[in-house]
Amino acid sequence: MAENVTPRVRVPREASAGETVSIRTLISHPMESGQRRDSDGNVIPRSIINRFVCTFNGETVVDVTIEPSVSTNPYFQFDAVVPESGTFTFIWYDDDGSVYEETADIAVN
């Protein structure tokens, strides 16, 4: 069970209609790869975020399938088109079944 999992996102507060904005996301998570061993030589079981999805007003921006080769605290930077005012929803899916969600509003002027 991953502890202290905190999602963080950076989205501009406002944009003009149809503008492409840059989004940065990070979630603090150990991303235990399942390759490491503890001091007794036992394999530490895999525990990672295996999927990340960003949507805007229900439309997909990016959907990422994640493998153990992604670093601790998975970070993604990508671009999204903003056609109207609305809400970005960010969802991370954990191996242990947990789902972490974060939202960010953006206003089109």
């Binding site: 080769s69 993604f76 088109v81």
Partner: peptide, 29 residues
């Protein structure tokens, strides 16, 4: 990552509102 125990790293599927087919991230090697 061709030399990792599991070579797959990540797959990015871009949706209708993707502003570009570009992404930055951090990986293990």
């Amino acid at each position: 990552a061709a030399g990792n125990p599991n070579p797959s790293v990540a797959t990015f599927n871009f949706g209708a509102l993707a502003g570009s087919a570009a992404v930055s991230t951090r990986i293990r090697l």
